[in-house]
């Protein structure tokens, strides 16, 4: 057990305050009765009520959620396949190029990703809207998925797959009955991350969206430019709640899998590696 000293207690408190104070303030102000953002007028749930009548915001939220669900799922599928290829196929021709191409979006400025996708869609004369945002977000999130799943596959005990094949399971069934259940927590974490990335993306979405597909961050940003409205605070608070619940669910799922006997846990290393990107 590590000892709790005055210093690391201080460090933890400072870190939490730094990370969460702005969010806490935002949540508190979403319950502000006053219309003026900087003036506290007592507690009220008024803005949540008004939000229910704001069709533009609700529409944007629904689009954002749908984009995030589809993009996260597609990114998890593609990213996992790429990770399997990188870890399992050993040294194939062009592996280095393939790996760097997968990792490039991690460090690529979003403006460039967005602009290049925009040029692509224009060149191919694809009408911009819901699906172009989905494609863009899938592209962006897939590389994060690959990194997470790859780090799990690298220390996956290959003899488990060999044992399954030895006992008569063909390769695909081996993957589905042995590999997949064991890497599921990593896939869940990857999906969650992709979901969150898509949900809060503003830059790429603004390049690739079209009429009728305004995502929530775009809507919020455009409204805030005309001055912060209390409804926006309420939207953001709901947003935060959704993300918190999703993250809790993912870590709970990982815990349950671990309790069922899988030695794999969501490791903080999987995610902290991403900070470099």
């Amino acid at each position: 057990m590590r000892r709790v000293t005055a210093f690391n207690l201080f460090a933890i408190v400072l870190g939490i305050v730094f990370l969460y104070l702005p969010i806490v303030i935002l949540v508190i102000y979403s319950f502000n009765a006053s219309r003026l953002v900087a003036v506290w007028g007592g507690w009220s749930t008024r803005w949540y009520g008004e939000l229910a009548g704001d069709a533009a915001i609700l529409d944007a939220a629904s689009i954002s959620l749908r984009v995030a669900l589809v993009a996260a799922s597609l990114a998890t599928l593609l990213g996992t396949l790429a990770a399997v290829a990188l870890v399992r196929f050993g040294r194939f021709r062009g592996r280095l190029l393939f790996a760097s191409m997968i990792y490039a979006p991690l460090v690529m400025p979003e403006v460039i990703t967005g602009l290049s996708l925009l040029l692509l869609f224009v060149a191919l004369a694809i009408e911009r809207g819901f699906w172009t945002v989905v494609i863009a977000h899938t592209t962006m999130a897939a590389c994060f998925v690959t990194v997470i799943v790859q780090s799990r596959l690298v220390d996956f005990d290959m003899s488990l797959e060999e044992a399954a094949m030895d006992l008569g399971a063909p390769p695909l069934r081996t993957f589905l009955t042995v590999t997949l259940p064991l890497i599921l927590p990593a896939l869940a974490a990857a999906w969650m991350l992709a979901f969150a990335l898509s949900l809060d993306d503003l830059v790429i979405a603004s390049f690739t969206t079209g009429p009728g597909a305004t995502t929530l961050p775009i809507r919020i940003y455009s409204e805030v430019r005309l001055g912060v409205k209390p409804e926006i605070n309420a939207v953001c608070s709901i947003f935060i709640a959704v993300v918190c619940i999703a993250v809790l669910a993912a870590s709970l799922a990982a815990k349950l899998t671990a309790a069922r006997g899988a030695p794999t846990r969501l490791r903080t290393g999987d995610l902290s590696r991403l900070d470099a990107g």
Partner: peptide, 27 residues
Amino acid sequence: PHRRPVNMMFQNYALFPHLSVEANVAF
């Protein structure tokens, strides 16, 4: 490998961690 009438007991046993003893044997 999955069609060979040969079975191997691995040096590290390679038991499936997510399956019970019974499910391991039934696999």
